[in-house]
Design a binder for these strands. Structure first.
Lengths: 223, 223
DNA sequence: GTGAGTTTTTGTACATGTAAGGAAACTACT
DNA sequence: AGTAGTTTCCTTACATGTACAAAAACTCAC
């Protein structure tokens, strides 16, 4: 992979005019300034002063570019901070930190459906979560499983909310949910009819923390 | 919207040659036979004997078509069944039924990031879940919130797993996770280093049920 | 210098979703 | 019959990601 020589490597071939870093940095700027919708390979290449296909020697495809952007974002947004001493509270705080950082970055959804370890820069928080769970008495296995459950819950919350929001935008028709509740047969679905009016506010309110607490409670109870 | 006339409506305009039902049904067949990757608007139009743009008079865009396909799938896969009498077990069984149906349908991921009520045909199960939670002593609000938490967890599990699987396919490079664990500094991340070897099997094994049980336990404890 | 080998860049080309505008096929009213 | 109105369909065109192949720019061995 890498030569052991002091000077990195590369003794041969046409010298690159652009670098992966430049690609990612420029992409980051475009996204920051105009949104992820404006990020196209052509636009990016133009901005760098290159051609679209040249980019493909530095990133494997657009998806990888987005993953790199997410990683870059995590590096900035997930700096280690002071966390509570109590292990359970530590788990909650670390998970919430990851959640809030990702939720603040809506364009990320397209990439977020990533595996559980989405960035080395989030590792610090992952460590806190697993450590907290172990300190609460879980075995290492159970702690790892617990982290995964938390990750599913977290990423699900973000993806669902963001996609729903996007679908609502630029679409003045009533929501699918509104249609469902409007045409709900109370005889067939008494419970849903009962909560129909309260569904909207329940959805709108930020209940991530409540669900997270419940999940952690349950994980600890099982361990 | 609809005339109150006995004959549905439509007294004017060019008579349609294709119907929304035909579009969806043909799309379903293509997906079933050759996978969602082969479903293109041109291909679909050709199969129907029409033109791509004609389809857009029956579905608003490809995404809506996929949502309709998901709905169609839910109608088949989520038939009501006998569920346990015990309310807690009922919640678990209903959630697992939804989960398993969706997990068996990998192409769905692109659409799944939907809002909580993704199909009327899943309503029956949603009703069972909310009802079970209420029977366990939760208030209607809390039950609705609880359902949402379950939905986040479920959809997150599916989306994450499916996307990870897709990324792994056609890519022989080591996983990001493998790279992370390979380069892990045990001094900095002792817990992660401790579980590193066990992470892979933990990930592979199907722990949806365990996490779900924990979540429900926690939800009930909070209520 | 010359040629081989290697890496990066470029040019061309294609598949895809879909916007825009006009043509086609029908009904209703005169 | 003729005209207006309405709905559906078709043609054309564009933006986008990216495959493929050839050109360009460099190093090294001779």
């Amino acid at each position: 992979m890498q030569q052991p020589s002091p000077t990195p490597r590369k003794a041969t071939g046409r010298p690159p005019r652009i670098s992966r870093e430049e690609v990612v940095e420029t992409a980051r700027r475009i996204v920051a300034e105009e949104g992820v919708g404006k990020l196209t390979m052509r636009r990016l290449a133009g901005e760098i002063g290159s051609t679209p296909m040249a980019l493909y020697h530095h990133v494997r495809n657009k998806e990888e570019l987005l993953v790199l952007l997410l990683d870059d974002y995590a590096a900035r947004a997930l700096r280690p901070v002071e966390l509570p001493a109590d292990p359970r509270e530590r788990v909650l705080a670390a998970a919430t930190a990851i959640h809030d950082a990702l939720a603040a970055c809506p364009w990320i959804v397209e990439v977020l459906a990533a595996d559980d370890l989405f960035s080395t820069h989030a590792l610090w928080y992952v460590e806190r979560i697993v450590d907290g769970l172990v300190d609460c008495g879980l075995s290492p296995e159970r702690a790892a499983q617990g982290y995964r459950a938390i990750w599913y819950y977290t990423t699900g919350e973000i993806v669902v909310r963001a996609t729903a929001a996007e679908r609502r935008a630029g679409d003045d028709r009533p929501t699918y949910r509104e249609q469902v509740f409007a045409a709900l047969d109370p005889a067939e679905y008494p419970r849903l009819a009962q909560v129909a009016g309260r569904w909207e506010p329940v959805t709108a309110q930020d209940a991530y923390g409540d669900g997270l607490r419940a999940l952690v409670t349950g994980l600890l109870a099982a361990g």
